[in-house]
Design a protein around this nucleic acid. Sequence first.
DNA 1: CACTTCCATGAAGGCTCCCTACATAGTTAA
DNA 2: TTAACTATGTAGGGAGCCTTCATGGAAGTG
Lengths: 313, 313
Amino acid sequence: MEVRHLELLRDLRDRGTLAAVAEASFRTPSALSQQLKTAERELGVALVEPYSRGLRLTWAGQILADGADDVLTAVARVQGRLDAGRGAPAGTVKIGTLPSAGAALMPGLFTRLADTLIDVVLDDFDLAEADYAARTADADLVIAHSLSADVPAGAHGLVSRVVLREPIDVAVPSHHRLASRDAVGPADVCHEPWVAVPPGYPFGTIHESIEAASGVPLNRIARVRDNRLVESLVEAGHGVGLLPRFSTPASAGLVLLPLTGVRATRSIVALARRDRAQRRAVSAVVDLLAEVGATLEERVRPARTSTAPTRTS
Amino acid sequence: MEVRHLELLRDLRDRGTLAAVAEASFRTPSALSQQLKTAERELGVALVEPYSRGLRLTWAGQILADGADDVLTAVARVQGRLDAGRGAPAGTVKIGTLPSAGAALMPGLFTRLADTLIDVVLDDFDLAEADYAARTADADLVIAHSLSADVPAGAHGLVSRVVLREPIDVAVPSHHRLASRDAVGPADVCHEPWVAVPPGYPFGTIHESIEAASGVPLNRIARVRDNRLVESLVEAGHGVGLLPRFSTPASAGLVLLPLTGVRATRSIVALARRDRAQRRAVSAVVDLLAEVGATLEERVRPARTSTAPTRTS
DNA sequence: CACTTCCATGAAGGCTCCCTACATAGTTAA
DNA sequence: TTAACTATGTAGGGAGCCTTCATGGAAGTG
């Protein structure tokens, strides 16, 4: 039983096809196919079977793929202990993030990393909530979000940590009749024209909650994905929209109002595969992200406290 | 970090010198030396340092050697799960045993293995109690014994299981004045001539306990290791001796008497390295050994119950 | 102190095995 | 049917592991 084979089966389970694994590991499908054959010959069991255009793991293949998680985690743990004995964490951490959370967190992270030996390579992608988990195959750390729970869908078996709980506010133009309010509820905003999102996209559930709470179907004048686009439409007075509080830059043209009466918070979560999370540099970055997140929550909340008393839970 | 390197460091830790590891793995010391160099280059840390004639692990080497235990155990666990899914356990199990316990256990084990797919390769050696643990590097399973506790000295980090608790009896010639007794105490036997063991050998502690309990120094007419030799000297009427109850064949010439008043029991223990213990065939053999042990304990105890009531604890 | 023995290490070369390149065959969708 | 995707098989190059042989240091022995 060779670790190389275990790793291949894990990657095959995670990426689905041999071709995808080959591309990710800079090898040819042929090499991997031969490796599978070798593993099957050595173990005397079928590990994969043809399925549709590609392959599917047999029961034995699944056992080995799952076992690979344990083995590779154990290896990573040893590496972590070695690093710990050697001094400060170092190395390169590959981070993939959803853009808005990255905008809120990365500046603070980069500041904190300045006097460490850790380098960060940053990638960003805008995906459906359930698709972020799969990106942990490529990146050491994936910054995802979840609107319903504290751990996004599909993150089973991954290490996850909430680094920030971010309120989703209602954005209105600064000359709007509601602009001077401290907060708004569903009844206040249900008759406004809305800059909404395409079906299935993250904030959609909040739009639906407003409809459910007020009993009024929203007038969606636009369905866009990009938050900067939402901002510009709202600023121009075409309607109101939903925007995450910390990721939205202060702007003269619009005002963010806390939304009460419906759940309007998203959890920003750092996801990592178990083995990658064992790396000392990776766990250090997660700690720093949580620190940045706490700073953001602190910095904004007291600002409102000065004008109006807040309910501290 | 390659598993091959971890394994090498573990073996080096367990066997002491590169030459010993080389011999055990059918390679040359040169190959291993080069492998160590490669590992040090890849990790950027010194793993070994010259010490006396040989090598010594550095702190980093120790971390990796200990980590190897975890990693290789995880690998073995996967193998075990695979075997479990495949049906009956199979393969070859290498057993090393102390001779007397082997004599008691192996016949029953071989009987039970007859209709399985498991093969056993048997080796035997007579060692000091603390030296059995080291043999787990060579054999999958080591049958050792412990007179003081349930786990022999030096067995830290190994899987151990008591398969049999064996009383150590006083052997007297069949025409001896005590031969008709049901049991004897220190005061009964302290004035007899004794066939004893060399200093440091297993049963020595029991001889000393008899001296301590009776206050009489024993008259040791001989100091021998081999139990068959003890038997023949006792049968010939030269003195009395200590013999393990189950490992001593029924013989017309001598009688075994339970020894009361001092601790006179040894634990027969199956030892295995954590990774080897994960193999399905190995754990199956351990189960069978425990079964054989239970049978031995059962078969002998009720026999005495019929003549004299026993204290069941 | 010389001799022996047991360590580890280094250079040179063979050999195994892994990967790439290229060709082939099966499956799905347009 | 064609195109695009999958996996698989064969042939060949190359990296890396191991062996052989030689060297040097450390400990024990006469």
